Simulated scan of single mutants.
Amino acid sequence: MTGTAAAKKTTTPKKAAAKPSHPTYSVMIKKAVKDLNEKGGSSKFAIEKYINANYKLSGNVSNLIKLALRRMAAKKELVHASSKSTGASGSFKLPAKEPAAKKSSPKKKAASPKKAAASPKPKKPAAPKKAKSPAKPKAKKAPAKKAAAKKTPAKK
Score class of each variant (00 low, 15 high):
99 P>K: 10
93 K>N: 14
98 E>A: 14
34 K>T: 13
59 G>E: 03
50 Y>C: 03
121 K>H: 06
65 I>P: 00
32 A>Y: 02
141 K>I: 14
100 A>M: 08
43 S>L: 03
50 Y>Q: 00
113 P>V: 05
125 P>G: 06
111 A>F: 04
76 K>H: 11
2 T>C: 07
106 P>Y: 03
143 P>G: 06
93 K>A: 11
81 A>P: 04
131 A>Q: 12
71 R>Y: 10
140 K>C: 06
49 K>V: 01
141 K>Q: 14
138 K>I: 10
103 K>M: 08
61 V>D: 02
45 F>R: 15
101 A>N: 09
71 R>M: 10
149 A>I: 14
75 K>R: 11
79 V>E: 14
105 S>Y: 04
2 T>H: 11
81 A>K: 05
76 K>L: 07
154 A>Q: 13
63 N>I: 14
87 G>Q: 06
26 S>Q: 13
141 K>G: 12
12 T>V: 00
104 S>Y: 06
48 E>S: 15
102 K>I: 10
19 K>R: 13
41 G>W: 05
148 A>Y: 05
9 K>R: 10
124 K>W: 01
148 A>S: 14
109 K>G: 03
79 V>Y: 09
54 N>C: 11
11 T>F: 00
92 F>K: 01
42 S>E: 04
101 A>V: 11
71 R>V: 08
125 P>R: 10
16 A>E: 10
80 H>Q: 01
108 K>I: 01
121 K>M: 09
48 E>A: 11
99 P>H: 06
99 P>Y: 05
100 A>P: 01
134 P>E: 08
92 F>L: 06
122 P>R: 14
52 N>H: 03
95 P>C: 04
44 K>M: 09
134 P>T: 08
141 K>V: 15
104 S>H: 09
156 K>P: 06
3 G>S: 13
57 L>S: 04
67 L>A: 12
58 S>T: 09
58 S>F: 02
98 E>F: 11
94 L>H: 04
151 K>F: 13
156 K>F: 06
91 S>P: 01
116 A>K: 12
62 S>Q: 10
12 T>C: 00
100 A>N: 08
105 S>D: 12
58 S>L: 06
42 S>K: 00
87 G>A: 07
6 A>Q: 11
88 A>M: 02
124 K>I: 01
62 S>D: 13
94 L>S: 05
31 K>H: 11
65 I>K: 00
128 P>H: 04
21 S>K: 11
141 K>F: 05
81 A>S: 14
41 G>L: 04
76 K>E: 13
1 M>D: 09
34 K>A: 14
112 S>R: 03
114 K>Y: 02
13 P>M: 00
102 K>S: 13
52 N>T: 13
113 P>N: 06
100 A>F: 07
42 S>C: 14
22 H>K: 07
153 P>V: 15
139 A>L: 11
118 A>E: 10
122 P>K: 14
88 A>I: 02
118 A>N: 09
24 T>S: 13
36 L>K: 04
13 P>I: 00
130 K>A: 14
38 E>N: 12
109 K>Q: 08
146 K>R: 11
